[in-house]
């Protein structure tokens, strides 16, 4: 693939399960592309240098900073954003746990945190508090002091674990 610096390229990707496409320049950040071209504004931009974690989305199953990725690099990939979460018009268990544990205040960093947790719990279904905190250390939250977030993730992990055990 070659895209001239002043070309606009048609980028096609799978967004939250549906194929979507729009134009991007080679330099267009993935976060800008998602928000302003594809209209999924749930992903937020907080620093544009990969530290705050607000823009985290899942690309091909991996939590990724969308400010450190180009739209053209997402060509042909599966991208999941916060809009993909939830069950039947409602909140999923992780989202509900965030609400119940007061794990958000302004909510600006929340989308990125949810996406990290989403991947993390898929990978590590039974994490320790230390592991949860380590994973969350890739996100900055200025409102909550993190306690509610840690509690929410641990509670969901426990609940899912119990579910699995019941099913067996």
């Amino acid at each position: 693939m070659y895209i001239r610096h002043d070309d606009r390229h048609q980028v096609t990707l799978t967004l939250n399960g549906s194929e979507r496409s729009a134009h991007a320049e080679s330099r267009t950040q993935l976060c800008d592309f998602l928000r302003h071209q594809l209209g999924v504004t749930g992903t937020h931009v907080g620093c544009e240098h990969g530290v705050c974690g607000a823009c985290t989305v899942i690309v091909d199953g991996r939590a990724t900073r969308s400010c450190l990725m180009l739209a053209v690099q997402a060509e042909g990939r599966r991208v999941e954003t916060v809009e993909s979460l939830g069950e039947m018009e409602g909140l999923d268990d992780l989202q509900r746990a965030f609400r119940d544990h007061h794990a958000l205040q302004c909510g600006f960093c929340t989308a990125g945190i949810l996406m990290s947790c989403h991947e993390f719990l898929r990978r590590i279904p039974d994490p320790s508090e230390g592991e949860v905190r380590d994973m969350l250390s890739g996100h900055l939250c200025r409102c909550t002091g993190y306690t509610g977030i840690v509690q929410a993730v641990l509670a969901v992990a426990r609940r899912r674990q119990n579910h699995r055990e019941e099913e067996q």
Partner: peptide, 11 residues
């Protein structure tokens, strides 16, 4: 805080 333009190659 946006990158300057560049040619993009994906070999």
């Amino acid at each position: 805080m946006k990158p300057a333009a560049f040619d993009y190659y994906r070999p």
